[in-house]
């Protein structure tokens, strides 16, 4: 199956932007990544099993494109993360602390944490999106959670 691009943009633009931002840490780059991801969807004549399959494919492509952006020269000429964070309005101080703490995590833990807590994916689903083994995802999730707990103390619950 395939879905109209316009419909996918409305449903997943924001989600892809946040995932790309997790890696690029930069609004302009993340927006470019989202555009390129939809362009790749248009260009790739691929049939999907379900809309969930499309969503996972879009996320995987966006994450990999964001990693490539980080390796390119142009990435270094963008607005610093600190400047961008100052333009954001968090509802509470704790929200801002959580936001900044997550962005300080090493990338490999950050993206797993993001897919689990933001996209609400299971370990098995994350393994599918990132093409990792489930045990690898579990390790990254555990280490990422520990880093968050160490930094945020009582603001972050112990996950089972």
């Amino acid at each position: 199956m395939r879905q109209p691009v316009q419909m996918l943009i409305e449903r997943y633009q924001n989600s892809l932007f946040v995932a790309a931002f997790q890696i690029c840490k930069n609004r302009e780059d993340a927006e470019d990544v989202v555009q390129d991801t939809f362009i790749q969807y248009i260009a790739t004549k691929k049939e999907y099993e379900s809309e969930e399959h499309i969503r996972a494919w879009l996320l995987r492509v966006a994450i990999n494109k964001a990693k490539n952006v980080n390796l390119s020269f142009w990435h270094r000429n963008r607005q610093p993360l600190e400047d961008y964070i100052e333009t954001l309005t968090f509802e509470t101080k704790e929200d801002g602390e959580l936001f900044e703490t997550v962005l300080r995590l090493p990338e490999k833990y950050r993206i797993v944490i993001h897919l689990f807590y933001y996209e609400e994916y299971s370990v098995q689903e994350i393994a599918g999106v990132l093409k990792l083994s489930e045990s690898n995802v579990k390790v990254r999730l555990t280490r990422g959670r520990k880093m968050l707990k160490d930094a945020l103390k009582e603001e972050w619950e112990d996950d089972k």
Binding site: R27, H114, Y117
Partner: peptide, 19 residues
């Protein structure tokens, strides 16, 4: 929950416009 906290913190991230 942690999920709710996380989603609330990252709800501030929005692209500058619709594609």
């Amino acid at each position: 929950t942690n999920k709710e906290k996380y989603q609330k913190a990252f709800s501030v991230l929005k692209p500058s416009g619709n594609i």
